[in-house]
Design a protein around this nucleic acid. Structure first.
Length: 467
RNA sequence: GGCGCGGUAGCCAAGUGGUAAGGCAAAGGUCUGCAAAACCUUUAUUCGUCGGUUCGAUCCCGACCCGCGCCUCCA
């Protein structure tokens, strides 16, 4: 079956292919760099990474833009409090974000673009919106007039056509004609940084950066726009209103949204003490691979309960796959090929692919891999696994890891591989000579360095203990 | 109140109108000089509750209960 995604816009699963060139033009909402990103943010970014990787496996090229929101109320507040410039303040968290992404093996998008690098583009877009009567000004700020856009509400499936009974009024400190209108340009308040522009002094509202940067780099209609589910309203709804008013074209063909992450069954919040950054979790001794696996293993449209038990379980699951890979690479098998096993390998590959094609059903895809691992291990035990079956098995693992990216352990330290090999050889010789004392001494010595020896039928092999 | 998501074994979780994938944990076993590691086996007559449709429902329909999200900044 072809690749298909659930589209928030149509509320249906639809077959996906890019509109032109076999290149997927994709825009995803990035971080607001006012602090370190938390594990909930990374749930969404991990989803985006899986999406990137799986699109590529489907043979598509990628042109993916992600924004860095480096100007907003919180950033201004914090920067002013610390007597830093905006750029000075946001540089720290932008860099931290990139580093955290690298730690989680999240690929960097083709373009990672900062809002503040596009002020002129935004001003120009706002002027065009004004020229077509989609805006009004009030006290130095410019607002988007929602009543000027008939399709408003089509993404979040809210009906705004009637009166706005029950709607909150005047939630902003700025003056708006209608509660649902939103700021395109904000006049500066006392002591706030601002840009001097044709619109007057001020700074851009939140939503306009995404419309402007997406259209600038990817064109009037995106193939995919993705982000967290909480962005559907108002952020993405507002992006549509701005973009479609500007271009007259549909802004994005597919809208994909990742569900929320909970921590230990509760909403993550600072007051509950369950608010974790990536750094917090790494400090507790968990590996980036385990975190990545846990975030990836629950399909993106289902809320994910992040627990430390789950993290341990993820680590053990990865170990199982790594052990299987090690066994494949080190054991020796009789010549020839088992047709039955070859068929199972092919079936596992197919199952894995079909599952991910089905709106990135990662849980089901993992099922296909683990089922195969059990069957192959059994065949190895029974002696029916043949040398000719190893290559296809390794290919399945490679396919798996091209998406999940957890098999390769993080760079290790300590004794070099060659050094370990030498000690292992010495122990084998000692065992042969029945010098068990020396053999055990070496085993303990290596164990102290986190190296685990496995005595198997076809000889000894070793691995580094994973954190 | 409006819109949306979910309730499947101790935990995480897939799934289909025809009788429950997978992972972790637990218990048993294999291997071994002893160990460790690894591997294998077993583990839900049952899928929130109550009705309905059907030869048959966890999967379809209705009602209800519970949890979560958005509606205001938010991944």
């Amino acid at each position: 079956m072809a690749l298909r995604f659930y589209n928030t816009l149509s509320q249906q699963v639809e077959t996906f292919s890019p509109a032109r060139d076999n290149i997927v033009r994709m825009y995803t909402c990035g971080p607001t760099v006012y602090d370190y990103a938390h594990i909930g943010n990374f749930r969404t970014f991990t989803f985006v990474d899986l999406l990137r990787r799986w699109l590529r496996t489907n043979g598509f090229g990628l042109d993916h833009v992600m924004n860095i929101t480096d100007v907003d109320d919180k950033i201004i507040r914090n920067a002013v409090a610390q007597r830093k410039s905006l750029a000075e303040y946001t540089a720290v968290y932008t860099e931290a974000f990139r580093k955290d992404c690298a730690t989680l093996r999240l690929e960097e998008p083709e373009r990672l673009v900062p809002a503040t690098g596009h002020i002129d583009d935004m001003v120009e877009a706002i002027e065009r919106l004004s020229a077509s009567h989609h805006t009004y000004s009030s006290e130095g700020s410019v607002y988007y007039r929602i009543s000027s856009f008939p399709g408003y509400g089509k993404l979040s499936h809210n009906d705004f056509s009637g009166n706005l009974a029950g709607a909150r009024v005047d939630v902003d400190e700025y003056e708006k004609a209608d509660a649902r209108d939103f700021a395109l340009w904000k006049a500066p308040k006392e002591g706030e940084p601002f840009w001097e522009t044709a619109l007057g002094p001020g700074r851009p509202g939140w939503h306009i950066e995404c419309s402007v940067m997406a259209i600038k780099y990817l064109g009037e209609t995106l193939d995919i726009h993705a982000g967290g589910i909480d962005l559907i309203f108002p952020h993405h709804e507002n992006e549509i209103a701005q973009s479609e008013a500007l271009t007259g074209q549909p802004f994005a063909r597919f809208w994909l949204h990742a569900e929320f992450l909970m921590v230990e069954g509760q909403k993550m919040s600072k007051s509950l003490g369950n608010y974790f950054t990536l750094r917090d979790i790494l400090e507790r001794g968990h590996s980036p691979e385990a975190i990545r696996y846990l975030l990836a293993s629950v399909p993106y449209r289902k809320s994910l309960n992040f627990t430390f038990d789950g993290l341990k379980s993820a680590k053990t699951a990865i170990d199982r796959l790594r052990n299987f890979k090690l066994r494949l690479e080190t054991d020796r098998y009789p010549e020839g090929q088992s047709e039955e096993l070859a068929a199972r390998t092919a079936q596992a590959c197919k199952g894995f692919t079909e599952s991910l094609n089905d709106d990135l059903n990662t849980a089901e895809a993992l099922g296909a891999v683990f089922e195969y691992v059990r069957d192959a291990n059994s065949a190895m035990d029974a002696g029916t696994f043949r040398a000719g079956n190893a290559a296809a098995a390794l290919e399945l693992l490679a396919l798996f890891d091209s998406v999940f990216a957890v098999l390769q352990p993080a760079a290790s330290q300590g004794t070099s591989d060659a050094g370990v090999d030498a000690l292992v050889a010495e122990r084998t010789a000692a065992k042969k000579a029945k010098n068990f004392a020396r053999a055990d001494e070496i085993r303990d010595q290596l164990l102290a360095q986190g190296i685990i020896l496995e005595d198997t039928k076809s000889g000894v092999r070793w691995k580094r203990k994973s954190p």
